[in-house]
């Protein structure tokens, strides 16, 4: 059998390990309850004086359940999603190192590059699953609680439901891709330590520090390169004319973070002594 088949076998094993782990399943379920809770809160309070108020797209949810997807993602982006990414990517290498299973994996043998690639793909898949869990649960609860309708864009014009769903899917995909830089950062931290919690915390801190720096006008010069700066640019999908240039820039910044931190992770991991 070929190397490639062997590689996919390891990837399948890794994916079943990641998605079969109770902690990770709990995380996904927890994330999926966010849109449910948000939907219920908005449903219960929709007749009160607070209707139509609140941050971001929350005010639009009661009019069209489709906006529950956007609102839920906006709510999860600052902390819950970075936390999820931190746990998945920070655990990738450090978790195996702490358990001691890394040395056995390398002695099988699996080349260190392959271990890193498989771990990265699994962490990315988990990040994608996290965004999908929020988006799908939001779509479902939104449809049940508020019904789905033609989408009124930011400019005030309306597009039919079918196109609206596509645009909301675009939002979810953009959010997912916006997390790739953080996955790479977490993977790098994961190669530095045998303490997964340390790598996880450091990853979350990077996202938070980036968001804080993004609020300081004195640092405007570096804002466009910050990891989190373009995270909310998904709003482009809700304009009449989607500016792909803006979206492309956001993804290019993620690409740069991925390139830098994936290289750092690779150069660290392929030369480190495995003493755990």
């Amino acid at each position: 059998m070929s190397r490639a088949e062997g590689g996919s076998r390891l990837l399948r094993s890794e994916l079943s390990l990641v998605f079969g782990r109770r902690r990770n399943i709990t995380l996904l379920v927890g994330l999926a309850t966010v849109p449910l809770l948000l939907g219920i809160v908005l449903f219960v309070t929709q007749d009160s004086a607070l209707a139509g108020q609140g941050p971001g797209f929350v005010g639009r949810v009661t009019g069209n359940g489709l906006f529950l997807v956007v609102s839920s993602l906006v709510m999860c982006l600052p902390f819950l999603l970075p936390l999820t990414i931190g746990i998945a990517s920070g655990d990738a290498i450090a978790g195996e190192a702490q358990a001691g299973t890394l040395r056995y994996l390398l002695a099988v043998p699996v080349s260190r590059t392959r271990v890193l690639v498989v771990k990265a793909v699994a962490a990315l898949a988990f990040a994608g699953a996290a965004v999908a869990a929020i988006a799908l649960m939001a779509l479902l609860s939104g449809a049940v609680l508020f019904g789905l309708d033609d989408v009124t864009l930011l400019s005030g014009s309306t597009v039919p439901l079918g196109e609206g769903v596509l645009r909301i899917a675009g939002v979810a995909v953009y959010v997912g891709l916006s997390l790739t830089g953080l996955v790479a950062v977490g993977l790098f931290f994961s190669t530095l330590t045998e303490v997964p919690v340390g790598a996880m915390a450091a990853t979350v801190v990077v996202a938070i520090v980036s968001a804080v720096l993004d609020t300081l006008p004195q640092l405007a010069a570096i804002h466009p390169g910050l990891l989190t700066h373009h995270w909310l640019d998904f709003a482009e999908f809700l304009r009449l004319e989607v500016d792909w240039g803006v979206l492309g820039e956001g993804l290019a910044v993620q690409g740069a973070w991925v390139a830098i931190f994936a290289s750092l992770a690779w150069s660290r991991f392929t030369t480190a002594d495995v003493t755990s």
């Binding site: 088949e5 062997g6 076998r9 094993s13 994996l105 699996v110």
Partner: peptide, 9 residues
């Protein structure tokens, strides 16, 4: 099975 899956050979 996990270790065996890791073994490409």
């Amino acid at each position: 099975a996990r270790l065996d899956a890791a073994d490409a050979t």
